[in-house]
């Protein structure tokens, strides 16, 4: 099984780009299954099913979608196996800029919207800096100079990634992504590890505290001046 994990900010064009890439794999007789992980709502399932690709949707609700995706990887792989798929594609919501859902041997694909401004690559954190491939979408909406600057910024954050400029509407660049999917390594789950450890999330807020006053908080707490304490036993 080859596992392709696709992360990116909401609406960046993950589904649009994947639809083109997976269609081209299908034309070559290669089967994929898609899992879409989102928080509250998504209609991506329908879009993938329209092109005849088995799709499953998972909603993480109040949990970080990347954490949720990671807990479920094993089941997802089993399910893709049942579908006789060579490729398991996981599209995640990517709302949490501290997590990156890629595992060491998966193909980590970060989809990033060029209209979001040239500072975005500096803001998005590990899901860009640990990706194998950065797909830049919506370049059709900005000037050539802005596109070139955006690309440079991505390479500053992740000098080793391959940059693909794609258009989710026309499909330009998506065949190149399909090529990379074909070339990606096999994963076996036993020893598989995350590339980037999940962030600190051990405080009273994590377990449902809603009061804002400081005196109610326990766990690892960080103040705005950078001072960090551990409150509790």
């Amino acid at each position: 099984m080859k596992m392709i994990i696709v992360a990116g900010t909401p609406g960046s064009g993950k589904t649009a780009v994947l639809i083109h890439a997976l269609r081209s794999l299908k034309e070559r007789g290669l089967n994929s299954s898609v899992i879409k992980i989102d928080c509250l709502y998504t209609d991506d399932g329908k879009k993938f099913e329209k092109i005849g690709i088995p799709t499953k949707v998972g909603l993480s609700m109040d949990m970080c979608p990347d954490h949720y995706a990671i807990y479920n990887i094993e089941d997802m792989i089993d399910w893709a196996d049942e579908n006789d798929s060579e490729y398991l594609i996981v599209e995640t919501a990517g709302l949490c800029h501290r997590c990156a859902p890629y595992t060491v041997n998966s193909l980590g694909v970060c989809v990033i919207d060029a209209t979001s401004g040239p500072n975005t690559p500096l803001k998005v954190g590990p899901f860009l800096s640990t990706a194998d491939i950065a797909v830049i979408t919506k370049g059709d909406m900005i000037s050539q100079a802005e596109r070139e600057i955006f690309r440079e910024r991505i390479l500053e954050v992740n000098p080793n990634c391959k940059v693909i400029e794609a258009n989710g509407l026309s499909g330009q660049g998506c065949i190149e992504l399909a090529e990379e999917i074909v070339k990606s390594p096999e994963v076996s789950l036993d020893e598989e590890k995350l590339r980037h450890s999940a962030p600190l999330a051990v405080c009273t807020l994590c377990v449902g505290e809603t009061k804002v006053n400081k005196k109610h908080h326990r766990g690892i707490l960080r103040r705005i001046d950078g001072f960090q304490t551990y409150e509790g036993e």
Binding site: T115, P118, N119, I142, S143, E146, I149
Partner: peptide, 11 residues
């Protein structure tokens, strides 16, 4: 020189 009439970059 594309048909875009405005810049979106924030700088």
């Amino acid at each position: 020189l594309s048909q875009n009439m405005n810049f979106l970059a924030d700088m």
